[in-house]
């Protein structure tokens, strides 16, 4: 079991000029639990996720990691860069577009954070990077640059890069949406393992199967609102809210043939 964080969001609002991207978001995530966020595109799922590590700056409300407010020292008083970086060290993030650094090999991508942020020696960082890459099944691809890896392999390097930092919370922003269908499985299986090890995970996804089988709770978002948060069964199989029903109907229609 790994040390795992909790996340508390209270009345979180986010505006882009006049457009309200997040409306009074309340969300509790217990340590070691997996939360999946689903909903139509543009509904604010990614924005919500990105508020958790303050890549997106929320305008009001609170986001707390293990009880500690992130991004602000007090309302309207931004946290110092140093403090924010300190908090981000224990929050891993995986992006839709992988965002590997193309001028570094897989191993260098993973080692970079260990060297610059955790101040490890090069040798130690390289050793840990290798371990992390073995864990995601890429023992034979360590010296490859991202341009020589498939999408699925790149995403697994990105996961290893986050895991090597020994985070207590992992954020996944549509981690399989940019992948060819046959490569989705390898990434999901790494995520499943991670979940079973007790990592706190927040996953924005369109993979309903993953949400149904792995998530402890599923949140449905629409137009910046968190319409419902409940067990996967209650959201995905017996939704009461008409908006969720309609979303799932569209989803099933698209995926049936």
């Amino acid at each position: 079991m790994v040390a795992a964080s909790s996340v508390e969001m209270r009345k979180v609002n986010k505006y882009y000029d006049k457009f309200q991207a997040l409306k009074d978001i309340d969300l509790s995530i217990l340590p070691g639990k997996v939360t999946c966020l689903i909903g139509p595109s543009g509904s604010g799922k990614s924005t919500l996720l990105r508020c958790i590590n303050f890549l997106e700056e929320y305008d009001s409300g609170e986001v707390r990691i293990d009880g500690q407010l992130i991004g602000y020292d007090a309302p309207n008083k931004k946290m110092s860069g140093r403090k924010l970086r300190e908090m981000r060290r224990s929050i891993g993030m995986v992006f839709q577009q992988f965002n590997l650094w193309p001028h570094m090999t897989a191993r260098e991508n993973v080692a970079e954070g260990l060297i610059r942020v955790r101040r490890m020696s090069k040798a130690e960082a390289q050793r840990r990077a290798a371990e992390a890459l073995v864990k995601v099944g890429l023992a034979d691809k360590m010296e490859n640059h991202p341009s020589r890896l498939s999408g699925g392999q790149q995403q697994r390097v990105a996961i290893a890069r986050a895991l090597a930092m020994e985070p207590k919370l992992m954020l996944f922003d549509e981690p399989t949406s940019a992948l060819d269908p046959e490569l989705v499985g390898e990434v999901l299986s790494v995520m499943r393992t991670l979940a079973s090890e007790g990592m706190t995970m927040v996953v924005v996804t369109h993979e309903m199967g993953f949400a149904a089988h792995v998530a402890d709770q599923v949140g449905f978002m629409e137009k910046g609102e968190l319409v419902g948060v409940d067990s996967p069964d209650r959201i995905l199989h017996r939704p009461e809210d008409a908006r969720i029903q309609s979303f799932l109907r569209t989803y099933h229609e698209r995926n049936s043939f």
Binding site: R85, R88, G113, A158, M165
Partner: peptide, 14 residues
């Protein structure tokens, strides 16, 4: 790509 900068920020790089 901005994402590559964000990836660095997300792991806490200065």
């Amino acid at each position: 790509p901005h994402g590559q900068i964000e990836a660095a920020r997300a792991i806490g790089m200065a």
